[in-house]
Design a protein around this nucleic acid. Structure first.
Lengths: 267, 267
DNA sequence: CAGTGGTCTAGACCACCAC
DNA sequence: TGGTGGTCTAGACCACTGC
């Protein structure tokens, strides 16, 4: 299948000549789009692709690299490269808030409307020292004691979100329910309400950054992928911050949705 | 300065052995953090770095690549690699809305509080066909006529944001002010209010993706950088979508901020 | 013109996976 | 054990920058 030069659909109009690996990445991506390589299927090995496009394997590797960063493929060392199914999931911050008293938690409600399943894995719950940024947001001294709740959230049995909640120890220590595993997402808000700290005001700060190796493993991602980092602070009616949550979401699978104002919803 | 093997501060605890280029990237990043390579300064050439770390230039290139993706350095072909100054800018969606009648526009007000300067460049304003996604959000037929306003926004004289606004032609055609260049950001909302379509409800959808080459040039970025893509829809009181704006922001320089609920602001 | 980064190659060794 | 991707090298040519 060696062709010597890369076949292009047409000379690119006014654009500068692209590099070889970039053109190859485009071709592969097009094959993914038109299901020549359908979701879940295995890409030809880099050796084979190198032969097909008549380039070295390093060049193929570079092309695949860009596809990984964009979330199109998933590489497993030793096994092979598979095409990712990339369902889009919408995170509606407002609805999350409104549904906080729902027994199943907002995440599950949200997912079920789309025919998805969801569940939560509790990685760790216990007393810890507040990280600097969290301490600042909770208006506590550095390294103050907090209740930390680490969760991993799944959609259709695939990990799609990491969340670490922090509550001031002075508030959390009196509520045994907060230490239990089955307090679904949103449940902690209800517990806070029981204690007289009902969250009524919320702030979220959103950044993008590359996933750490740890996060990549926990979310079943390739390492160079960008993730959303959402820092959510919940305030009680008197303006006291009562909970800070750090969410980490794969950038390629999520759309964040915010909505505000007087009128009707658009959705 | 050739050392043969890379000096590490300490054997990494339980972590897997890192690749060479990744370790080198960490070292360079640390030098940027402690101002061994201060912002604006030029990195040693890849040849020099290759000699220092006793690796091939390809390996250095790969290390630099990851620093580019994270936004730490800016490479200019033929010239060299310089350390980026990476000021963090916060985009407060709510405040943007509240300040829409301000003469200077929300962006400028927001920036001036931090001692920054801001200005807007109008790339193009005129009648166009609505892109599919925009038509859908505006509840117009595909390729319906719209008024398109393309802007490039600067902070401290550096481009930091691209924005494309779309208004239904049926609404915009009666308002000459909307065709003018000096209608600052936020101003279009005031013009819509004059026409009886005051925006009172807003929705934003946020995605992350790699910058296109065009965007990279317009924003003075390296190509592989992730950007925020924000699709903002403004609704009038009766629920009619009256304006859709596509914002593109470099991921490494912006933090998005949202806030809602009853209580006091936390800022 | 010299220096810089962009890209490519051929060959090599390794870690990992599935059989 | 064989196939896969991860990484590295030495050398090369090119495009672009700035003097």
């Amino acid at each position: 299948m060696s062709t010597g030069t890369l076949k292009l659909p047409a000379p690119v109009s006014i654009e500068a000549p692209r590099s070889r690996y970039s053109q190859i990445a485009d071709v592969i991506r097009r094959r993914i789009d038109d299901a020549t390589y359908p979701p879940g299927s295995q890409l030809p090995s880099e050796e084979q692709l190198a032969a097909e496009f008549d380039v070295s394997r390093v060049t193929i590797n570079k092309a695949v690299w860009s596809l990984r960063a964009a979330g199109f493929v998933r590489v497993r060392r030793g096994a092979g490269t598979v095409v990712r199914a990339t369902p889009q999931i919408v995170r509606d911050a407002r609805r999350w808030h409104e549904q906080r008293y729902d027994a199943t938690g907002a995440g599950q409600l949200q997912a079920s409307r789309l025919g998805l399943t969801a569940h939560t894995q509790y990685v760790w719950i216990g007393r810890a020292s507040a990280p600097p940024q969290v301490a600042r947001l909770l208006r506590l001294p550095p390294a103050a004691p907090v209740l930390e709740r680490q969760q991993r959230l799944f959609t259709n049995d695939k990990p799609t979100q990491l969340a670490e909640s922090y509550l001031p120890w002075s508030i959390a220590k009196d509520c045994p329910a907060l230490f239990e595993h089955d307090a679904g997402p949103g449940r902690s808000d209800a517990r806070l309400a029981d204690l007289g700290y009902e969250p009524s005001h919320f702030a979220e700060d959103i950044k993008v950054r590359a996933a750490t190796d740890l996060e990549a493993r926990a979310l079943d991602l390739d390492s160079p992928q960008p993730v959303f980092e959402i820092l959510r602070t919940a305030f009680s009616a008197d303006g006291t911050p009562v909970e800070v949550t750090l969410h980490v979401l794969p950038g390629s699978t999520w759309t964040l949705h915010y909505e505000w104002g007087d009128g009707e919803s658009s959705r």
